[in-house]
Design a protein around this nucleic acid. Structure first.
Lengths: 153, 153
DNA sequence: ATACATAGTGAAGGTGCATCACGATGAGTG
DNA sequence: CACTCATCGTGATGCACCTTCACTATGTAT
């Protein structure tokens, strides 16, 4: 088997993982009444506290206009609320409602459970090797100029 | 560091890889005049030869109606053509045009180059460990009932 | 012939994304 | 203070992807 074939095969597996992960997360999110983008927004909000929509746009790497729609939806379903910014009357702060906080916790719990599903009981050596390889691949991607925020900065 | 944290951290890295991969492939595909879904269709067509739209729907895991739109777009851009099915007058066969064949080859070349970027020069041991871990994770996903086609069958 | 299943598509709708235009506000300058 | 320019959110519009339901044309089994 040529090196080329080994590499392509590995990429195929990675891609398969991507598809599977995507499907599973989408389903899991749907059961909480969320979509991927809305969950992502909640996730950022949870890590960084109340934010303006502008900040959210930057954090998610999407247009400001798009955030309006996502927040609209999350407000409609009661996960977040819009508050006036205390000092800048142009801006609005997006904050969790109680329900939103609970959902964000569920989100994290689900993620932890999923990580458990993937890795629990795996020999420590294999786990470390996998994570190491993952890090190496990520580093190569970064070196190739694909650092998530290189374009968005 | 607790086991839980190690697992979550690893999942975070996997998710980061997913995002990075997605971005890069989207860009690469756009340069060929394709989107992800259309490229996927071409990919399946390349592996399995001329197919009915119904078969494509199954292969891509989307609704038949959706295939109509994807094929419409690919016909409009000259990558594929619709031919009457030789024996079933209800069905249409989707086949490559010459341009489509060339593009499919480009697609594969790009994918191989990308695999090269990710893995070339990586110590054989690390590569094998990574692929092994990947296989293990994939197996767990499959065991958890997330086998790509389990729901679609 | 009749009934049922299948292939593709029109219609309508949901979600995520973008750009452009615009009003409201903030901040810097004279 | 008035003027200018940048910034925040959003309306309008459009593309891609996906869905379900309804419908026609066709195949198939009884």
């Amino acid at each position: 088997m040529s090196e080329k074939d080994r590499f392509s095969g590995a990429l195929d597996r990675v891609l398969e993982l991507v598809v599977l992960l995507n499907d599973d997360m989408t389903k899991s999110l749907a059961s909480l009444g969320l979509t991927g983008s809305r969950a992502h927004l909640l996730w950022v909000l949870r890590e960084r506290g109340p934010l303006t929509q502008r900040s959210l746009a930057q954090a998610l790497g999407v247009s400001a206009r798009n955030i309006t729609g996502l927040v609209d939806a999350l407000v409609a379903t009661g996960f977040v609320s819009r508050e006036p910014h205390p000092t800048d009357r142009r801006a609005t702060l997006v904050s969790f409602t109680k329900q939103g906080e609970a959902t964000a916790r569920d989100l994290q719990r689900d993620q932890e459970e999923f990580a458990e599903l993937l890795f629990a009981g795996m020999p420590r050596e294999q786990f470390d090797a996998f994570v190491g390889g993952l890090g190496e691949v990520l580093a190569r991607l970064a070196k190739a100029g694909l650092t998530r925020n290189a374009a968005g900065g």
